[in-house]
Nucleic acid binder design. Structure first.
Lengths: 135, 135
DNA sequence: CTACAATTAGTATTGATTATTAATAGTAGG
DNA sequence: CCTACTATTAATAATCAATACTAATTGTAG
Protein backbone atom coordinates (compact mmCIF):
# COMPACT_ATOMS: atom_id res chain seq x y z
CA UNK A 1 0.00 0.00 0.00
CA UNK A 2 1.89 2.91 -1.43
CA UNK A 3 1.21 6.31 0.09
CA UNK A 4 0.05 8.79 -2.50
CA UNK A 5 1.42 12.28 -1.91
CA UNK A 6 -1.26 14.83 -2.59
CA UNK A 7 -0.56 18.55 -2.45
CA UNK A 8 -2.35 18.88 0.87
CA UNK A 9 -0.59 15.91 2.40
CA UNK A 10 2.78 17.10 1.25
CA UNK A 11 2.18 20.63 2.52
CA UNK A 12 1.12 19.37 5.95
CA UNK A 13 4.16 17.11 6.20
CA UNK A 14 6.53 19.80 4.97
CA UNK A 15 5.32 22.43 7.42
CA UNK A 16 5.47 20.02 10.35
CA UNK A 17 9.03 18.91 9.55
CA UNK A 18 10.25 22.38 8.63
CA UNK A 19 9.14 24.01 11.87
CA UNK A 20 10.47 21.22 14.09
CA UNK A 21 7.74 21.73 16.63
CA UNK A 22 5.13 19.46 18.10
CA UNK A 23 2.02 21.00 16.61
CA UNK A 24 -1.60 20.22 17.29
CA UNK A 25 -3.82 19.64 14.27
CA UNK A 26 -5.39 23.09 14.53
CA UNK A 27 -2.06 24.87 14.96
CA UNK A 28 -0.87 23.22 11.79
CA UNK A 29 -4.17 24.06 10.13
CA UNK A 30 -3.57 27.76 10.81
CA UNK A 31 -0.10 27.55 9.29
CA UNK A 32 -1.10 25.58 6.21
CA UNK A 33 -4.18 27.71 5.62
CA UNK A 34 -1.97 30.68 4.92
CA UNK A 35 -0.33 28.80 2.05
CA UNK A 36 -3.41 26.91 0.92
CA UNK A 37 -6.46 28.92 1.99
CA UNK A 38 -9.15 26.42 1.01
CA UNK A 39 -7.77 23.48 2.95
CA UNK A 40 -10.13 21.95 5.48
CA UNK A 41 -9.37 21.20 9.14
CA UNK A 42 -10.67 17.67 8.61
CA UNK A 43 -8.08 17.18 5.88
CA UNK A 44 -5.33 18.17 8.29
CA UNK A 45 -6.62 15.74 10.91
CA UNK A 46 -7.01 12.93 8.39
CA UNK A 47 -3.59 13.35 6.84
CA UNK A 48 -1.79 13.64 10.16
CA UNK A 49 -3.44 10.38 11.12
CA UNK A 50 -2.46 8.73 7.83
CA UNK A 51 1.12 9.99 8.02
CA UNK A 52 1.59 8.75 11.57
CA UNK A 53 -0.05 5.45 10.67
CA UNK A 54 2.51 5.09 7.87
CA UNK A 55 5.34 5.79 10.30
CA UNK A 56 6.41 9.00 8.59
CA UNK A 57 5.63 11.18 11.59
CA UNK A 58 4.92 10.46 15.25
CA UNK A 59 1.68 10.89 17.13
CA UNK A 60 1.94 12.37 20.59
CA UNK A 61 -0.84 11.71 23.02
CA UNK A 62 0.10 13.46 26.21
CA UNK A 63 -2.13 12.74 29.16
CA UNK A 64 -5.11 15.00 29.39
CA UNK A 65 -4.00 17.16 26.52
CA UNK A 66 -4.74 17.77 22.89
CA UNK A 67 -2.99 15.46 20.43
CA UNK A 68 0.27 16.68 18.95
CA UNK A 69 2.30 15.40 16.04
CA UNK A 70 6.03 14.81 15.98
CA UNK A 71 8.29 15.49 13.02
CA UNK A 72 10.50 12.66 14.32
CA UNK A 73 8.85 9.23 13.98
CA UNK A 74 11.51 7.39 16.01
CA UNK A 75 10.63 6.04 19.45
CA UNK A 76 11.61 8.56 22.10
CA UNK A 77 10.33 10.32 25.18
CA UNK A 78 9.09 13.85 25.72
CA UNK A 79 9.26 16.70 28.14
CA UNK A 80 6.57 19.30 28.28
CA UNK A 81 5.95 22.66 29.84
CA UNK A 82 2.99 22.97 32.17
CA UNK A 83 2.82 26.72 31.56
CA UNK A 84 2.93 27.17 27.78
CA UNK A 85 2.22 23.55 26.72
CA UNK A 86 5.39 23.43 24.64
CA UNK A 87 6.79 19.94 23.99
CA UNK A 88 10.40 18.87 23.38
CA UNK A 89 12.04 15.57 22.58
CA UNK A 90 14.18 13.62 25.04
CA UNK A 91 16.52 10.76 24.35
CA UNK A 92 16.55 8.68 27.48
CA UNK A 93 18.06 5.22 27.30
CA UNK A 94 15.09 2.89 26.86
CA UNK A 95 16.06 -0.24 28.75
CA UNK A 96 13.09 -0.23 31.05
CA UNK A 97 14.21 -3.39 32.86
CA UNK A 98 12.54 -2.51 36.10
CA UNK A 99 9.26 -1.73 34.41
CA UNK A 100 9.27 -5.10 32.73
CA UNK A 101 10.07 -6.92 35.93
CA UNK A 102 7.23 -5.23 37.76
CA UNK A 103 4.82 -5.79 34.91
CA UNK A 104 5.39 -9.53 35.25
CA UNK A 105 4.12 -9.33 38.80
CA UNK A 106 0.82 -8.02 37.46
CA UNK A 107 0.77 -10.68 34.72
CA UNK A 108 1.07 -8.24 31.84
CA UNK A 109 2.90 -8.88 28.58
CA UNK A 110 4.71 -5.59 28.12
CA UNK A 111 5.05 -4.09 24.67
CA UNK A 112 6.46 -0.69 25.55
CA UNK A 113 6.10 2.34 27.69
CA UNK A 114 5.65 6.07 27.52
CA UNK A 115 7.55 8.53 29.65
CA UNK A 116 6.49 12.15 29.98
CA UNK A 117 8.71 14.46 31.94
CA UNK A 118 6.91 17.47 33.33
CA UNK A 119 8.41 20.86 34.00
CA UNK A 120 8.69 24.51 33.08
CA UNK A 121 10.61 25.48 29.96
CA UNK A 122 13.40 28.05 29.82
CA UNK A 123 11.18 30.68 28.25
CA UNK A 124 8.51 30.43 30.91
CA UNK A 125 11.11 30.44 33.68
CA UNK A 126 12.52 33.67 32.31
CA UNK A 127 9.08 35.24 32.10
CA UNK A 128 8.37 34.30 35.70
CA UNK A 129 11.66 35.79 36.85
CA UNK A 130 10.89 39.01 34.99
CA UNK A 131 7.51 39.17 36.69
CA UNK A 132 9.06 38.68 40.14
CA UNK A 133 11.43 41.59 39.58
CA UNK A 134 8.54 43.93 38.82
CA UNK A 135 6.78 43.21 42.09
CA UNK B 1 -10.86 24.88 53.59
CA UNK B 2 -12.51 21.88 55.07
CA UNK B 3 -14.07 19.39 52.67
CA UNK B 4 -17.73 18.88 53.34
CA UNK B 5 -18.82 15.28 52.90
CA UNK B 6 -22.18 15.18 51.21
CA UNK B 7 -24.03 11.92 50.63
CA UNK B 8 -23.20 11.95 46.94
CA UNK B 9 -19.55 12.71 47.52
CA UNK B 10 -19.22 10.02 50.14
CA UNK B 11 -20.95 7.44 47.97
CA UNK B 12 -18.69 8.17 45.01
CA UNK B 13 -15.58 7.93 47.16
CA UNK B 14 -16.74 4.75 48.88
CA UNK B 15 -17.52 2.91 45.65
CA UNK B 16 -14.22 3.93 44.08
CA UNK B 17 -12.17 2.77 47.08
CA UNK B 18 -14.22 -0.36 47.68
CA UNK B 19 -13.85 -1.69 44.15
CA UNK B 20 -10.13 -0.95 43.91
CA UNK B 21 -10.33 -0.27 40.21
CA UNK B 22 -9.44 2.69 38.06
CA UNK B 23 -12.88 3.80 37.00
CA UNK B 24 -13.88 6.44 34.51
CA UNK B 25 -16.48 8.98 35.65
CA UNK B 26 -19.23 7.28 33.66
CA UNK B 27 -18.37 3.79 34.90
CA UNK B 28 -18.60 5.08 38.44
CA UNK B 29 -21.81 6.89 37.56
CA UNK B 30 -23.38 3.57 36.51
CA UNK B 31 -22.36 1.97 39.79
CA UNK B 32 -23.49 4.80 42.02
CA UNK B 33 -26.75 5.27 40.13
CA UNK B 34 -27.86 1.83 41.29
CA UNK B 35 -27.54 2.94 44.91
CA UNK B 36 -28.64 6.55 44.38
CA UNK B 37 -30.82 6.64 41.28
CA UNK B 38 -31.29 10.41 41.03
CA UNK B 39 -27.59 11.29 41.04
CA UNK B 40 -26.37 13.27 38.07
CA UNK B 41 -23.36 12.47 35.89
CA UNK B 42 -22.18 16.05 36.35
CA UNK B 43 -22.15 15.48 40.10
CA UNK B 44 -19.90 12.47 39.65
CA UNK B 45 -17.52 14.43 37.44
CA UNK B 46 -17.50 17.40 39.81
CA UNK B 47 -16.89 15.37 42.94
CA UNK B 48 -14.16 13.23 41.41
CA UNK B 49 -12.46 16.46 40.47
CA UNK B 50 -12.88 17.90 43.97
CA UNK B 51 -11.71 14.71 45.66
CA UNK B 52 -8.58 14.49 43.53
CA UNK B 53 -7.95 18.21 44.01
CA UNK B 54 -8.06 17.58 47.77
CA UNK B 55 -5.58 14.71 47.44
CA UNK B 56 -8.03 12.06 48.64
CA UNK B 57 -7.98 10.17 45.35
CA UNK B 58 -5.72 10.27 42.29
CA UNK B 59 -6.54 11.48 38.82
CA UNK B 60 -5.26 9.39 35.94
CA UNK B 61 -4.87 11.03 32.58
CA UNK B 62 -3.56 8.34 30.27
CA UNK B 63 -2.50 9.51 26.85
CA UNK B 64 -5.34 9.77 24.40
CA UNK B 65 -7.79 8.09 26.68
CA UNK B 66 -10.70 8.92 28.92
CA UNK B 67 -9.81 10.13 32.40
CA UNK B 68 -9.75 7.56 35.19
CA UNK B 69 -9.64 7.98 38.93
CA UNK B 70 -7.39 6.14 41.33
CA UNK B 71 -8.39 4.95 44.80
CA UNK B 72 -4.74 5.42 45.78
CA UNK B 73 -3.71 9.10 45.90
CA UNK B 74 0.00 8.36 46.39
CA UNK B 75 2.41 9.10 43.55
CA UNK B 76 2.98 5.98 41.49
CA UNK B 77 3.06 4.73 37.93
CA UNK B 78 0.59 2.68 35.93
CA UNK B 79 0.40 -0.16 33.50
CA UNK B 80 -2.51 -0.49 31.15
CA UNK B 81 -3.94 -3.03 28.76
CA UNK B 82 -4.27 -1.98 25.14
CA UNK B 83 -7.02 -4.56 24.60
CA UNK B 84 -9.49 -4.06 27.46
CA UNK B 85 -8.30 -0.64 28.71
CA UNK B 86 -7.80 -2.04 32.22
CA UNK B 87 -5.36 -0.09 34.40
CA UNK B 88 -3.19 -1.36 37.28
CA UNK B 89 -0.81 0.30 39.66
CA UNK B 90 2.97 -0.11 39.55
CA UNK B 91 5.52 0.79 42.16
CA UNK B 92 8.68 1.60 40.30
CA UNK B 93 11.44 3.36 42.18
CA UNK B 94 11.03 7.04 41.33
CA UNK B 95 14.55 8.40 41.20
CA UNK B 96 14.36 9.68 37.64
CA UNK B 97 17.96 10.87 37.74
CA UNK B 98 18.53 10.43 34.05
CA UNK B 99 15.34 12.25 33.17
CA UNK B 100 16.41 15.20 35.30
CA UNK B 101 19.85 15.30 33.77
CA UNK B 102 18.48 15.32 30.25
CA UNK B 103 15.86 17.89 31.07
CA UNK B 104 18.60 20.30 32.10
CA UNK B 105 19.99 20.07 28.59
CA UNK B 106 16.70 21.39 27.28
CA UNK B 107 16.65 24.10 29.94
CA UNK B 108 13.60 22.79 31.75
CA UNK B 109 12.96 22.96 35.48
CA UNK B 110 11.62 19.48 36.13
CA UNK B 111 8.81 18.98 38.60
CA UNK B 112 7.98 15.34 37.96
CA UNK B 113 7.24 12.74 35.39
CA UNK B 114 4.64 10.26 34.35
CA UNK B 115 5.41 6.71 33.27
CA UNK B 116 2.84 4.57 31.51
CA UNK B 117 3.76 0.99 30.80
CA UNK B 118 1.82 -0.51 27.93
CA UNK B 119 0.92 -4.16 27.49
CA UNK B 120 -1.71 -6.86 27.47
CA UNK B 121 -3.19 -8.01 30.76
CA UNK B 122 -3.39 -11.64 31.91
CA UNK B 123 -7.09 -11.88 31.13
CA UNK B 124 -6.73 -10.70 27.56
CA UNK B 125 -3.71 -12.94 27.00
CA UNK B 126 -5.78 -15.92 28.09
CA UNK B 127 -8.63 -14.94 25.82
CA UNK B 128 -6.28 -14.67 22.86
CA UNK B 129 -4.80 -18.08 23.59
CA UNK B 130 -8.26 -19.61 23.76
CA UNK B 131 -9.09 -18.06 20.41
CA UNK B 132 -5.92 -19.45 18.82
CA UNK B 133 -6.79 -22.95 19.96
CA UNK B 134 -10.14 -22.80 18.21
CA UNK B 135 -8.63 -21.95 14.87
C1' DC C 1 -36.63 29.83 62.63
C1' DT C 2 -34.04 32.41 59.32
C1' DA C 3 -30.57 33.67 56.29
C1' DC C 4 -26.65 32.29 53.93
C1' DA C 5 -23.51 29.43 51.36
C1' DA C 6 -22.56 25.14 49.23
C1' DT C 7 -24.26 21.53 46.55
C1' DT C 8 -27.18 19.26 43.55
C1' DA C 9 -30.01 17.58 39.31
C1' DG C 10 -30.84 18.43 34.95
C1' DT C 11 -29.58 20.26 30.93
C1' DA C 12 -26.99 23.11 27.63
C1' DT C 13 -22.65 24.08 25.89
C1' DT C 14 -17.93 23.49 24.65
C1' DG C 15 -13.94 21.66 22.31
C1' DA C 16 -11.47 18.13 20.05
C1' DT C 17 -12.00 14.70 16.92
C1' DT C 18 -14.28 11.70 13.56
C1' DA C 19 -17.88 10.57 10.10
C1' DT C 20 -20.49 11.72 6.11
C1' DT C 21 -21.24 13.18 1.53
C1' DA C 22 -21.17 15.25 -2.76
C1' DA C 23 -17.73 17.26 -5.64
C1' DT C 24 -13.07 17.14 -7.49
C1' DA C 25 -8.66 15.44 -8.96
C1' DG C 26 -5.52 12.01 -10.44
C1' DT C 27 -4.51 7.97 -13.10
C1' DA C 28 -4.52 3.82 -16.09
C1' DG C 29 -6.10 1.93 -20.17
C1' DG C 30 -7.98 2.39 -24.58
C1' DC D 1 -7.40 12.95 -26.06
C1' DC D 2 -11.49 10.46 -23.76
C1' DT D 3 -13.50 7.38 -20.26
C1' DA D 4 -14.04 4.89 -16.16
C1' DC D 5 -12.45 4.24 -11.78
C1' DT D 6 -10.52 5.28 -7.30
C1' DA D 7 -8.72 8.21 -3.87
C1' DT D 8 -9.01 12.53 -1.88
C1' DT D 9 -10.93 16.69 -0.66
C1' DA D 10 -13.94 20.62 1.35
C1' DA D 11 -17.55 21.48 3.99
C1' DT D 12 -20.32 20.31 7.37
C1' DA D 13 -22.72 17.28 10.64
C1' DA D 14 -22.25 14.20 14.33
C1' DT D 15 -19.98 12.29 18.34
C1' DC D 16 -18.03 12.06 22.79
C1' DA D 17 -15.95 13.42 27.00
C1' DA D 18 -15.99 17.04 29.95
C1' DT D 19 -17.50 21.42 31.78
C1' DA D 20 -20.68 25.40 32.55
C1' DC D 21 -24.99 27.05 33.83
C1' DT D 22 -29.17 27.62 36.54
C1' DA D 23 -32.88 27.10 39.42
C1' DA D 24 -34.01 24.20 43.23
C1' DT D 25 -32.46 21.88 47.38
C1' DT D 26 -29.80 20.98 51.38
C1' DG D 27 -27.01 21.88 55.32
C1' DT D 28 -25.56 24.86 58.81
C1' DA D 29 -24.51 28.79 61.92
C1' DG D 30 -26.42 32.01 64.32
Amino acid sequence: MQLRMTNQREMILRELVKNKQHFTADELYDIVKKLMPRISLATVYRNLEILSEAGIIGKLEISGRQKRFDYDPEDHDHIYCVVCQRVDNLNIDRTGDEAKRLALVEGYAVSGYRLEVIGICQNCQNKEKAKEKKQ
